[in-house]
Design a protein around this nucleic acid. Structure first.
Length: 586
DNA sequence: GCCGTTTTCGGCCCGACTGTTTTCAGTCG
């Protein structure tokens, strides 16, 4: 039995919860939580780290956790974990997901009422037994029932497009309020994580009560969870929770850094601050030692705050504690790609397969977005569920594209459609079209759309075989994941990256908020190996082209610059990069 | 349990809000 780093992280996370239930030392508990996070963001396979005895090099992983992870990865089991788990029922873990319920209360409910699952809890709440426990009351009982209902309804996380739309409206309305000074999104949304737990907003004001009051009465607010003068939490209409913090104007840059996170990034900033003799919190710098003569620097912006700590400004997307602080100190942070660098894109669909708009409609939408070229990549024939094209229909589409490119409209706009296909990678790694057909196209996106359940070795070999075809320009949505909906299929990503580098195959960032695949955590490795990126919207409608913005966010999280991303090249340079594999061989 | 140019012991972030208390514990971020 093999364990991915995510599985191992999950086990460590559960150990932390079990230790909490046992009332263990909080710092020991945090050590397990920290280690779980560290393993979640590895850039190489955990088996490799274990085999090469390099786990101990990871910060937050020491002797004890190294031993436990090694046992888990090599034997598929961990006796320490199993013994801990034996003292509590399996359903206990789900209770931790309920809002307002933590280890202390779970333990009381378990010990005194025998609660061992969400269903048990629902029953004892309904029976009124919870309100009778010491430290509990009527309100807690009612809140728990509500938390159970919410848990079932929302399951916690949201795709970024949902949150982005809500954020835009809330920010606009808050900005218009006269008591609002500075305002920003914060949290994981500002860091452009692939999914968002809740939306954090930050405002500066000298009249916080007015702003908080305005916020909780906003039409998008469905329910108020907590409400104080400086901190309010609400549930928004489309599901996510939204937290608003109101701070004084002079506190704003500190609060913005603090609430943008990540938590790990902040901890590093604080310890760095202590090196200067300053204590850093969400409001200010202050002398670290009581009665110290040390003075703290005046700060008006985030940039000044980083500068005071001897760091270049770190863009929010990079604040994940993945080396950004060392890079900022050394002055070698990458100049991240921006929307304005984009000159075109690839991988869009039309009514020929499963898209909702025609070639010309898609082209005009791209022109309106200011793009110089748009790659069309409709599905190939094996994707019959998506009305995939056979060789004949593909040839017709290519002819239509070539004709459109000759029109006055396109010529005057300096715009070109680029003819391609999203060609299925068949089960054995062969492609859905013959090489003669592929040779008639400007480029080829190769993607897996079937047999998702094959083993990792077989899937990896399948994809690598496709990349070895000189006609395959780029790899579509590498893992096939649908965020919050379908797990990625098993594939050895470092091995794929290696072959992408050796064959000159471009890898896509699929910018659809359902995919955001290849994941941002792998891009620094890909970039180091020299692999180029294409940011593709996988648009099925003209509106879908705007998903490119989410792809930009992921590219930035992956430390990519405009020179790493092929669609930052101007129209005149496109044919060269798209035909490089064919020309120079694999 | 982790960590270290305050280094092998003794720290480890801490403030806001809620509910149940009557001065504070639990939860969250």
């Amino acid at each position: 039995m093999s364990h991915s780093a995510a599985d191992v992280g999950e086990v460590l996370e559960q150990i932390a919860q079990l230790l909490e239930l046992k009332g263990e030392n909080p710092f020991k508990i945090r050590a397990y939580t920290n280690a779980a996070r560290a393993l979640d963001s590895l850039s190489e396979p955990i088996e490799k780290l274990v085999a090469e005895e390099r786990l101990g090099n990871i910060e937050g992983v020491g002797k004890a956790i190294t031993e436990k992870v090694t046992e888990l990865v090599t034997t598929g089991r961990l006796s320490y974990y199993e013994e801990l788990k034996a003292s509590f029922p399996e359903g206990i873990f789900e209770l931790f997901e309920l809002q307002g319920l933590g280890a202390k209360k779970i333990k009381a409910l378990h010990d005194q009422l025998g609660v061992s699952s969400v269903e048990d809890l629902e029953r004892v709440c309904a029976e009124g037994k919870v309100a009778e426990l010491a430290g509990f009351g009527e309100k807690t009982q009612t809140k728990l029932l509500k938390a159970i209902e919410d848990h079932r309804k929302h399951a916690g996380r949201f795709r970024i497009n949902v949150v982005a739309d809500l954020a835009e409206e809330l920010l606009e309305d808050l900005r218009a309020h006269e008591a609002v000074g500075q305002i920003s999104e914060a949290g994981s949304f500002r860091r452009r994580k692939e999914t968002i737990g809740d939306l954090d907003l930050l405002v500066s004001s000298t009249r916080p009560e007015e702003v908080s009051e305005f916020f909780i009465h906003h039409p998008l607010v469905e329910e108020v969870i907590v409400h104080g003068p400086t901190k309010s939490s609400v549930r928004l209409k489309d599901g996510p929770q939204c937290d608003l913090r109101v701070v004084k104007p002079e506190e704003f840059p500190f609060a913005l850094v603090y609430f943008t996170g990540s938590k790990e990034h902040n901890i590093r900033l604080r310890s760095r601050s202590l090196d200067h003799g300053w204590s850093l919190n969400e409001y200010r710098f202050s002398p670290a030692k009581e009665g110290s003569e040390i003075t703290v620097p005046p700060i008006h912006t985030e940039r000044e705050l980083y500068k005071a700590l001897g760091l270049d400004f770190i863009p929010p997307e990079l604040r994940e504690d993945r080396g950004e602080i060392a890079a900022a100190e050394a002055g070698v942070l990458p100049n991240l790609i921006e929307w304005s660098n984009l000159r075109g894109t690839f991988h869009c669909h039309t009514t020929a397969s499963d898209g909702k708009n025609s070639l010309i409609e898609m082209a005009r939408a791209a022109i309106d977005l200011g793009l110089e070229y748009l790659g069309i990549a409709d599905h190939s024939k094996s994707s019959f569920q998506a009305h995939g094209l056979d060789a004949e229909r593909l040839a017709e589409q290519v002819a239509e594209i070539r004709d459109l490119n000759q029109t006055k409209e396109f010529q005057q706009a300096g715009f070109r459609l680029v003819a391609g296909t999203e060609c299925d990678i068949l089960k054995n790694g062969e492609l859905d079209f013959d090489d003669e057909v592929l040779a008639t196209l400007d480029y080829v996106v190769a993607s897996v759309h079937s047999s998702f359940t094959m083993g990792e070795a077989e899937m990896t070999a399948r994809i690598i075989r496709a990349m070895e075809n000189p006609h395959v320009t780029m790899l579509g949505h590498l893992t096939g994941r649908l965020l919050l909906s379908r797990e990625p299929y098993a594939v050895n990503i470092p091995a794929v990256i290696e072959v992408a580098a050796s064959t000159g195959t471009i890898i896509e960032i699929n910018a659809s908020p359902w995919r955001l695949d290849m994941d941002w955590r792998w891009w620094p490795l890909a970039k180091e190996k020299g692999v180029k990126c294409a940011i593709n919207p996988d648009a099925h409608t003209i509106h879908g082209l705007q998903d490119l913005i989410y792809g930009i966010g992921i590219a930035r999280k992956g430390w990519l610059t405009k020179s790493d991303v092929v669609n930052c090249l101007p129209l005149g340079k496109i044919d060269e990069i798209l035909s490089a594999k064919k020309k120079h061989g694999v």
